[in-house]
Amino acid sequence: MKNNIKVERAIHNITQAKLAEIIGVSRQTINAMELNKYVPSTVLALKISTIFKKPVNEIFFLDDED
């Protein structure tokens, strides 16, 4: 799975640390997601979609491996 959290962060001008704080996760989690090293839970994906005010599947996408 891929995502464009990094792009959305840039659009909303939010740092990794700030985003982590808002959702209540560690900074490592945000970083690992942006590096496509970690696939978040549905709960976390929904929280991120709420913050960026976009549907989940405009932020997270399946890739060829899925």
Binding site: V25, S26, Q28, T29, M33, Y38, P40, S41, L44
Partner: peptide
């Protein structure tokens, strides 16, 4: 728990 235990750290 770590100070900021979350789902990634649990993984």
């Amino acid at each position: 728990k770590t100070k900021d235990e979350d789902e990634y750290i649990s993984t």
